[in-house]
């Protein structure tokens, strides 16, 4: 019996499996990053780090729905790039493939934070161009293709590690954002971040989250993520990291078929615990085998008509 290979290379980074800890989950402390890797993740993406410490929004910052989704408006809490390197050092010294997520309000500040993040020794950067609920940050920067291209180019010029752009689904044309990031020199695109959403308490007649609007994640958004990954795959040459609602190996394979080279897992940690990474890693080769794939790599883009994937580097 064959066992499908699940190792993957993403933008020059070798991962033992395609499952990355999504940014914002378990990423505040170095020990937690290490814990996610020890639990089975192929690699980890840090909490999004900015120039200064940020408390984030007051609670409630989370509204959980059964198991189909979760709404959050954390407000980009982070200890700031001055303090955070000590957490990354804990993960890197334990041999954890670590990608540093950063956010800022414009191209120059992005380049500045990115340079300091790259100096920690992370293997790659992920640019948060997609947080849907932070004024002047995230998707407010990342909704305009020209600005996305400017930011990515500024960061790519400032650092020597691969740059991954995480784009927003809260736009009419996510592919335009992907193309802009590719033009700017991004090594990969991750898609999607959360979908802008709102929960209102009926008794209190007010939004549940302290910030009001939040972002929806979890199983409910998987088909949206798969669609955007599909469209990006048809239009771009650089690899794509799929994010949104992955709970099982089959969810991940669906993203691979749509074109994802790797995937991020976040909300599943809230519903299934960090052990979800171990379960995904052990299920994946079995499900690939059962579906007739010799490897994870063989599944990437496999649902696209042959012509669309011909000539791709990914």
């Amino acid at each position: 019996m064959t066992v499908a290979a699940v190792e993957v290379e993403l933008a020059g980074i070798r991962l033992r499996n395609p499952f990355l800890l999504a940014s914002g989950i378990w990423g505040e402390s170095g020990e937690s990053l290490k814990g996610a890797f020890d639990a089975g993740a192929g690699g980890v993406i840090t909490k999004s780090i900015g120039a200064e410490p940020r408390d984030g929004y007051p609670n409630p910052t989370i509204e959980a729905y059964d198991t189909w989704g979760m709404l959050n408006a954390m407000g980009l809490p982070n200890p700031g790039i001055e303090e955070y390197p000590r957490e990354i050092a804990v993960a890197l010294s334990a041999g954890v493939p670590t990608i540093g997520s950063v956010f800022a309000g414009d191209a120059d500040s992005f380049a500045d934070v990115a340079k300091r993040m790259a100096a920690t020794g992370v293997l790659a950067l992920e640019l948060n161009l997609s947080c849907p609920h932070a004024k002047g940050l995230g998707s407010e920067v990342g909704s305009d293709p020209a600005e996305v291209e400017r930011v990515v180019r500024a960061v790519v010029c400032a650092v020597s590690v691969p740059v991954i752009a995480k784009i927003t689904p809260n736009t009419a044309d996510p592919v335009a954002l992907g193309l802009a990031a590719e033009r700017g020199g991004a090594a990969a695109i991750s898609a999607i971040n959360t979908l802008r959403a709102l929960a209102i308490d009926l008794t209190l007649r007010r939004p549940v989250l302290a910030h009001g609007l939040g972002g929806l994640s979890g199983a409910a958004i998987k088909p949206v993520g798969v669609a955007i990954v599909w469209q990006l795959y048809e239009a771009l040459r650089i690899p794509i990291v799929g994010v949104g609602g992955i709970r099982t190996a089959d969810d991940a394979i669906e993203y691979a078929l749509a074109g994802a080279r790797a995937v991020e897992v976040g909300t599943a940690v809230a519903f299934g615990g960090i052990g979800v990474f171990g379960r995904l890693a052990s299920e994946l080769p079995l499900r690939l085998d059962a579906l007739g794939f010799s490897s994870w790599a063989a599944a990437v883009g496999a649902a696209h008509p042959r012509s669309a994937s011909a000539g791709r580097t990914a």
Binding site: G24, W26, E28, I62, T267, V269, A270, F271
Partner: peptide
């Protein structure tokens, strides 16, 4: 913050 073992706000060692 989340109380669901996700956001890392309450991390204490591992």
């Amino acid at each position: 913050k989340c109380a669901l073992g996700m956001c890392d706000a309450c991390s204490l060692g591992p």
